[in-house]
Amino acid sequence: MLIWIIRRDLLLAMRRQADVLTTLFFFIIVVSLFPLGVGPEMNILRIMAPGIVWVAALLASMLSLGRMFSNDYLDGTLEQILLSPTSLPLLVLGKMFSHWLVTGVPLVLMAPVLGIQYDLPFSALIVLTLSLLLGTPILSLIGAIGAALTLGLRGGGVLVSLLVLPLYIPVLIFGAGAVEASTAGLGFDAHFSLLGAFLLVSLVCAPWATAASLRISIE
C-alpha cells in the first residue's frame, strides 16, 4: 500500500516536472543571490556558506509544502486516502517520503555544486551534502504537519511558513553547525548523531500528528 502511494506521487511528479524544477531553481537562485548582497569577499562567503545553503534549503523545502496535500484535497483523492482501510499515518509517511524524494533529494544533489560557488573545501562539501541528506527528510516530515493544518485555508502558503520555520530551527543549527565544525577542524559526529536523533523522533511522531491534522482539516 505504501508502495502504491509513493509510486503514484512519483508518477505525478514526473508528469509535472516543472513543479520539481521550480523548487530546485528557487534553491539555486537564493544561494546565488547572497554574494550579490554581501560582496564577493571569499573569506566572508566561505564562513557564511553553510548557513546560506541551509537557510535556502529550508525555504525551498517549505515552498513546496503547499503541494503536498492541496492537489489531493482539491480533486477529492485526499478523502479517498482518509477512508482507506490502510492506516493513515502509514499512507502519510509514504507521501512524506515521496515529497522528500522529489524536493529534498535534488537539493542534496545540488548542494556540492553551490558549495563550490562559495569556495568550500572538499571535505566541507562532503559534510554539507551529508548533513542535507540527514536533515532534509526532517524538513519534509515536520513540514507535512504544517501543510496538513493549513489545508484549504486562505493565505495558507504564508501561514505554513509561520508555523513550520520555527520548528526547523534545530535542524538548521545542527545541519549548518556540522559543516562549520568540519571547516574549523573539529569533529562533527555529534551534530550528525543529533540530526539522526531528530530524524528518528520526527519519523515516529510526525506521521501521527499529520494524520490527525488531516482529519481535522478535512472535517
Binding site: 505525478l12 508528469r15 480533486d75 479517498q80 477512508l83
Partner: peptide, 13 residues
C-alpha cells in the same frame, strides 16, 4: 465505499 462530490480522479494520471 464513499464516492464524494469530488470524484477523486487525478488529471495527470
Amino acid at each position: 465505499t464513499y464516492l464524494g462530490h469530488l470524484s477523486g480522479v487525478k488529471d495527470d494520471l
